[in-house]
Amino acid sequence: MARVGLVANPAAGRDIRRLTGGAVVSDNYAKRRAAASVLEGLSVHPGIEVLVAPDEAGIGEYAVSESPDEVSATLLDVPTHGTREDTRLAAARFRDETDVAVVLGGDGTVRDVVSAVGSVPLVAVSTGTNNVVPDHVDGAVAGVAAAFVADGTVPIEEVAIRHSTVEATIAEPERKRSIRSLATMGVVDRPFVGTRAVLNGEEFVGGVVSRAGPHEIGLSGIVGGVVRHPPDAPGGVGVRLGPPDETPRTVDAVTVPGVLEPVGVADYRLLDDGEEFVFEVETGVVSVDGERDVEVTDAEVAMSPSADGPYVVQVERTLAAAADRGGFDV
């Protein structure tokens, strides 16, 4: 029997970029409705079993209570604490017990799932407008796509990409740490993680991206103005930024949601998987997918692209492939 996991992050997107930029959020009512819509979409082929992650806001619980008869939905028996650990615990269960996982949230939520979900493919649905990886797609449409992947209507290798990631080692005098991002890893000239979101493009010192395109927001959008790099292409791009009047090239980019600004590109380099791009940082913060994550002092931050990322289902491609195979016929 086909099994699908569903997890929604109730905390996603309440961030400060609502003040500093043009970030849009969806409230938990909207997230509950979106989660219920996913189950509605999953009913396209009767008999799919759905494991729904619980959360402190009752999004999963609501989805289960609203689930259509054609779907067998149950709430996962895992504890919740209202932290990102909740997402990871659910993802670990999805790794062993599901064929595909639907994630409602932003880049951060997807990254949390990726850290524990193994090779289970993801259908990532954005619940805000601030994200690079998840699709801005209706919950029911995402559900239909997940159903077609889960029950084998379409072959996974035809409709999913393997998304590259970025790894970094942070070496400070007293310690060494490793972190990973999905799309972008940056160095931010800001003393603290503070409210986490990167507040403006001027603060970026540089970074490494696993994908780049001018339609994207943040570091991958900045790089995308110079060179394009699909998320499933090998390697990535390293970039150093600077003040627009002191760099050889300056590009306009949407650096944070709602903010278009010129950014000076000092230099950039295409990187192979595993090839390091190093920053010496006196004090600053390393950002992960647009969020300030690690405060560093006197650090050497060595970033490199990595090919071992998650399988991300391309919703549009999946639905087209399914239609070609009569998947929508009743």
Binding site: R14, D15, I16, P191, G194, T195
Partner: peptide, 10 residues
């Protein structure tokens, strides 16, 4: 907006 109230910088 919601911030981490255990982090003075946030």
């Amino acid at each position: 907006i919601t911030v981490d109230g255990m982090d003075v910088t946030a």
